[in-house]
Design a protein around this nucleic acid. Structure first.
Length: 196
DNA sequence: ATACTGATGGCCT
DNA sequence: GGCCATCAGTATA
């Protein structure tokens, strides 16, 4: 393992396990202007394949979801509700679909730049949702397919201390309600919402 | 505090 | 043509 960088093998596991282990890790985004923006991951959701009706990959491979079927450790960025981008990291071995949606961050560094990109100075509102955090980090379709294991502009550092973890149903879906595949830090003020 | 709604694009049936 | 892995604003309490 090279330093604190998350490696390929970290992502090459059962998706809910990867999701839980991503909590507390630090997401790093280096913008085209060279600004380094970082945030601690405090809320995630796991999505799998044929066993998960809420997943984009439930019905098999398509042009959009192909990354979920490929190698682990890549960014899967999709466009949501006509407005927002959502950031995921692919998981599981090649051929087994999976991805972890990054739902909320606790801003650490580059907060001034995040405020600018986000058009808001309310820190609690900066990255407390999947669409908010992509805007704050300047992430859009250009990051789709980025190899997070080798990238210099989008990667993840192993976390330190871990708080108390809670799980719940996933947010904003109507199927796959039985899986408790949303994980977040209990009581963290940057989580998008406490209950589901 | 919670509830509803409009905006808006792409994917899938 | 219907359905979203969302957010901000407005309305009601």
């Amino acid at each position: 393992m090279a330093g604190r960088h998350l490696g390929r093998q970290f992502f090459s596991r059962y998706t809910p396990e990867v999701a839980r282990d991503l909590l507390g890790c630090v997401l790093v985004r280096v913008t085209p202007e060279g600004k380094r923006l970082t945030g601690r991951i405090v809320e995630v959701e796991a999505y799998r394949g044929a066993d998960d009706p809420a997943s984009h990959s439930f019905r098999g491979i398509t042009k959009r979801n192909a990354l979920m079927f490929g190698d682990p450790g890549f960014a899967y960025v999709f466009f949501s509700y006509g407005f927002h981008w959502c950031l995921n990291f692919t998981t599981e071995e090649r051929g087994t679909p999976g991805a972890v949606l990054i739902r909320a961050l606790e801003p650490l560094k580059g907060i001034r730049e995040m405020e600018r990109l986000r058009g808001s100075t309310r820190i609690r509102n900066l990255t407390s949702g999947p669409g908010k955090l992509t805007k704050a980090l300047g992430i859009d379709r250009r990051m789709n397919g980025e190899d997070v294991v080798t990238s210099k502009r989008l990667y993840v550092l192993r976390g330190g201390a871990v708080d108390s973890i809670v799980s719940s149903r996933r947010i904003g879906i109507s199927r796959g309600l039985k899986q408790q595949w949303r994980f977040f830090f209990e009581g963290n003020r940057f989580v998008s919402r406490e209950n589901a």
